[in-house]
Amino acid sequence: MLKFLSAALVMGLLTLSPLPTHAQDTMNGWYAGGFVGYGASTSRWTQGAVSTGDFSTGGMVAGLYGGRNWQRDKTVYGVELELAVSEIEGATQTNCVGCRTDLDSYGFVKARLGRDTGRGLIYGALGYGAASVTQMLTGSGHSAGITPGWQLGIGYEAPFQEGWNLRAEAAYMHFDGASNTLSGPISVDVGGVTTLKLGLTQKF
């Protein structure tokens, strides 16, 4: 599914052509868009004094976002809602008979602040939200739960056609540790998640 969304977004980008500088308008107003990208992180399972240590997880992400910008001179600020599905996952056999962590989905409410350069918007974003994380243990089934977290990102957004912007964003996410009882009390941590995303935005 995520590969299909990625292909659809790329095909959409290929149909766009850049606006001349004089035709670019401000970043003020409502907007909505979609994105695809890749994320990488680590996970750790701990039971008492026994730990798997950090093991790598990674995979594609895709989602939707929408929000509102306000602009005063060159300063742009706003709020945004981001919702995503994820294939970020990984497993280990270290001190565990098949421990696997899946980051299934996540969502954030973000505040954005940036500067309009005349050719595009350079911005930073800080958000708070939650993720759905599934832990699977070979022979013991799986356990899923919601865990809170935060996101810090930086990006660049530039007009392509009238009413359309192209966005590139790098973000770091961190989620609190989850727990399950698949085989006694186990703490499952999702380490820092780094994502690189490419998005297409429609302005209203």
Score class of each variant (00 low, 15 high):
Leu81Glu: 03
Ala84Leu: 04
Ser132Pro: 11
Ala131Arg: 10
Leu152His: 00
Leu103Pro: 07
Val97Met: 08
Glu89Val: 14
Gly163Asn: 12
Ser143Arg: 08
Met136Thr: 15
Arg100Gln: 09
Ala131Cys: 10
Ile88Tyr: 04
Ile88Val: 15
Ser86Met: 11
Gln135Ser: 14
Gln151Asn: 10
Thr94Phe: 13
Lys110Val: 04
Asp104Pro: 12
Arg119Tyr: 09
Ser143Glu: 09
Gly118Thr: 05
Leu126Ala: 11
Gly127Thr: 10
Ala158Pro: 07
Gly155Trp: 02
Gly145Gln: 10
Ala130Phe: 03
Trp150Glu: 06
Gly153His: 05
Asp104Phe: 12
Leu137Trp: 12
Asp104Thr: 15
Gly153Cys: 07
Glu89Lys: 15
Gly120Leu: 01
Pro148Lys: 10
Gly107Ala: 07
Pro159Arg: 08
Asp116Arg: 00
Gly90Glu: 14
Trp150Thr: 06
Asn95Glu: 15
Thr147Asn: 05
Ala111Lys: 03
Thr147Cys: 08
Gly141Ile: 13
Cys96Lys: 12
Gly149Asp: 05
Thr94Ser: 15
Gly139Pro: 09
Glu157Asn: 07
Val79Gly: 02
Ser132Arg: 14
Glu82Thr: 09
Gly114Thr: 04
Leu126Phe: 11
Ile88Leu: 07
Glu89Phe: 12
Ile122Asn: 03
Trp164Arg: 12
Ile88His: 05
Val85His: 06
Phe108Gln: 02
Gln151Ala: 04
Asn95Pro: 14
Trp150Pro: 02
Ile146Tyr: 09
Gly139Ile: 15
Ile122Tyr: 02
Gly149His: 07
Thr134Lys: 14
Gly127Ile: 11
Ala84Gln: 04
Ser132Lys: 15
Cys96Tyr: 12
Gly149Asn: 09
Gly163Asp: 11
Val109Ala: 05
Gln151Pro: 02
Glu87Asn: 12
Val133Gln: 14
Gly107Asn: 04
Tyr123Ser: 02
Thr117Phe: 02
Arg167Thr: 02
Ala158Gln: 13
Arg119Lys: 11
Gly124Ala: 05
Leu166Glu: 00
Ile88Cys: 05
Ile88Asn: 06
Gly149Glu: 07
Leu83Ala: 14
Thr117Ser: 07
Leu121Asn: 01
Gly129Phe: 00
Arg115Ala: 06
Arg112Met: 08
Thr92Gln: 12
Leu83Met: 14
Val97Asn: 11
Trp164Glu: 10
Thr101Gln: 09
Asp116Ile: 02
Asp102Leu: 08
Gly141Tyr: 10
Ala130His: 03
Asp116Ala: 02
Arg115Pro: 01
Gly139Ala: 12
Asn95Gly: 15
Gly114Leu: 03
Gly120Asp: 03
Cys96Glu: 13
Ser132Val: 15
Leu103Gly: 06
Leu113Gln: 00
Ser86Asn: 10
Thr94Leu: 13
Thr134Arg: 13
Ala130Lys: 05
Glu89Cys: 12
Gly120Thr: 02
Ile122Leu: 06
Ala125Gln: 04
Gln93Phe: 11
Thr138Lys: 13
